[in-house]
Design a protein around this nucleic acid. Structure first.
Lengths: 211, 211
DNA sequence: TCGGCACTCCCTCTTAAGATAGAGTCCCTG
DNA sequence: CAGGGACTCTATCTTAAGAGGGAGTGCCGA
């Protein structure tokens, strides 16, 4: 068996794509100062592996089957409030990033980041220093300027995106059609869209909804 | 410098994500019988590298900046009609797969395929044997059953997805609003949707459009 | 050549969507 | 406690969307 080396950064990876997982593992294991101690293919597994290994850094992809990134961040921070979590995402517009950010993940980067940036991010997060790629930081600033949707509006938006009519939305949310219209109107105004279909397109681009 | 080994499968990779590229490269280079001779980050680069290296296998990700996978397949097969191309895609519903298939790519697999499957696919394609993952094959069968949209309907669908009104669509395509409605109606029927917004949702799931 | 398909245009009719305006409750924060 | 935001409901009105018909062209393949 391999001898345990001291002072290495112990990493747990979570991504539903084996290619990416294998890739990240290869990159990390090539470094002298870090090693992968666990690889998860979904959210549940990620949590289990975190508890098992208590790694120095958890690298987490946002969108995964069975519990997405946001839920995993929540749960892991419940287990260990000092957990060092690095979030990766494919989609630069992904709204969920900001949810993770406000919840206490320490680093955020995009999947199209170069190898060196990923390693820097892991090292930074392992030392409890925050790491945010400039791309994500820029998005954060952009986002500040734009009006945010309320929870209820997000509920309505989700149903609109599924192609539901106002009447149908009203039924599902136990409100009147008029109220549904009020919410839709607010959504259109906030997203600067003329029609519900355009609103869906805009919302999807901003990562507010996942079709 | 490394000595050139005979009989190795020479591979060119193309993916816009360095992680995936580095990952695939690591996996491939670990094998005795294959090596990566070039890595491209976009479609144009992929074509250039193909011409430069004339690899045994080209591994191509479908969605890339500057010329997407479909266009790259076309161009590479123009350069060398016997080129062995392996297509990878993240999205299992991606309609473009079938376009590549009919154009002459030799293999197709999903990004969430395990390491061994990827290696098998590369070996198969290098020997001019077709490789299709069972998941993609299953999708192909499902697709056969469903009615396909005409080119004009796809044009209209694209505009619908952008949130355009029938009147606006008519103006852009230089047809009457009535004709636009006729096309939209045909789209709704074929996609089994009640409203245009639902049609967009369905079309997106099937990979008919990319928002 | 003839049927079928894609594409275009036309009609009517009903319903859904969106604009506009007002208003009440609850809850949180300054 | 006063203000503000979130959420709910009301009403009216205009326009867009969608259902249901029919019908003419050009083109391709059996």
């Amino acid at each position: 068996m391999a001898a345990v080396l001291r002072e290495r950064i112990r990493v747990v990876l979570a991504d539903d794509h084996p290619v990416v997982r294998d890739g990240l593992a290869a990159i990390v294991n090539q470094q002298d100062d870090m090693e992968v101690v666990g690889e998860a293919g979904d959210g549940e597994e990620a949590i289990t592996l975190y508890e098992q290994h208590r790694p120095d850094v958890m690298v987490l992809v946002l969108r995964m089957p069975r519990r997405d990134g946001v839920a995993v961040v929540q749960r892991v921070l419940e287990i260990n409030p000092k957990a060092n979590i690095l979030i990766m995402t494919t989609y630069d517009g992904d709204e969920d990033i900001f949810q993770c950010l406000s919840q206490g993940a320490k680093g955020y980067l995009l999947k199209d980041a170069p190898r060196q940036e990923i390693l820097s991010a892991i090292r930074a997060v392992s030392e409890d220093r925050p790491y945010t790629s400039s791309t994500v930081a820029a998005k954060a600033l952009q986002r500040m300027a734009k009006p945010s949707l309320t929870q209820r509006e997000l509920d309505v938006l989700q149903l609109v995106a599924e192609g539901r009519s106002n009447k149908d939305i009203a039924r599902r949310l136990s409100i009147t059609e008029g109220t549904a219209k009020t919410h839709v109107k607010a959504i259109l105004t906030k997203l600067d869209a003329i029609s519900r279909t355009e609103a869906v397109a805009v919302a999807h681009k901003r990562g507010l909804i996942h079709l």
